[in-house]
């Protein structure tokens, strides 16, 4: 196995906020309804988090579980742990209707950091930041592509599709240009 290379191989931009493409990061799309028996336990076994409620992302350390839609979750974990995690899910949810697939390489993940990190996203997404609760993941439009972001102690995480990573990097760099602070 060769070294996995993320979409932009760690590109970064320093503006009024700091933008970095990070990765590779492990991501699993898990499709299941919340009432599936054993689901919470299976997710806990993989990410160590509780089953996230609607629009929430639950984080512990370098792992997280996010609610993506009424029957879809995104599990975030170290890249090297994906195969084992998929095996755990398969075992724990065996015989129960679900779908778990590795999407680590189908996505790009960005960090946006700095006191004004939110302003970068306010230029790109039609999302009301004041309406976002702590621990909420917001799936929305990032200029012309789909994306999702959530906030943690030091900044924002933003995911998008891998094929448009360079477009999104261009957007973030443009939006973080020094002198274009919003407030």
């Amino acid at each position: 196995m060769s070294r996995p290379v993320s979409a932009l191989d760690g590109a970064s931009f320093a503006g009024f906020a700091h933008v970095t493409e990070i990765g590779p990061v492990g991501m699993i799309t898990l499709r299941a309804k919340p009432d599936l028996p054993g689901l919470a336990e299976a997710i806990a076994a993989v990410t160590g988090t509780p089953l996230p409620d609607r629009r929430r992302i639950e984080t512990t350390g370098d792992k997280a579980a996010a609610w993506m839609s009424p029957d879809e979750y995104l599990l975030v974990l170290p890249y090297a742990g994906v195969a084992a995690a998929l095996a755990t899910l398969a075992e724990r949810l065996s015989g129960r209707h679900h779908l778990a697939v590795d999407v680590s390489d189908a996505r790009a993940l960005f960090r946006i950091e700095g006191a004004r990190a939110a302003e970068v996203l306010m230029k790109l997404a039609p999302a009301d930041h004041a309406a976002l609760a702590p621990g909420e993941i917001r799936r929305t439009r990032i200029a012309q592509v789909a994306g999702a972001f959530w906030r943690d102690e030091t900044g924002y995480n933003l995911i998008c599709f891998r094929s448009v990573a360079s477009y999104v990097m261009g957007l973030l760099s443009h939006a973080a240009q020094p002198g274009s602070e919003l407030f």
Partner: peptide
Amino acid sequence: PCCGVMAEETEL
């Protein structure tokens, strides 16, 4: 009604 977001038309 599925995720509870007040979504503007460009998200729809």
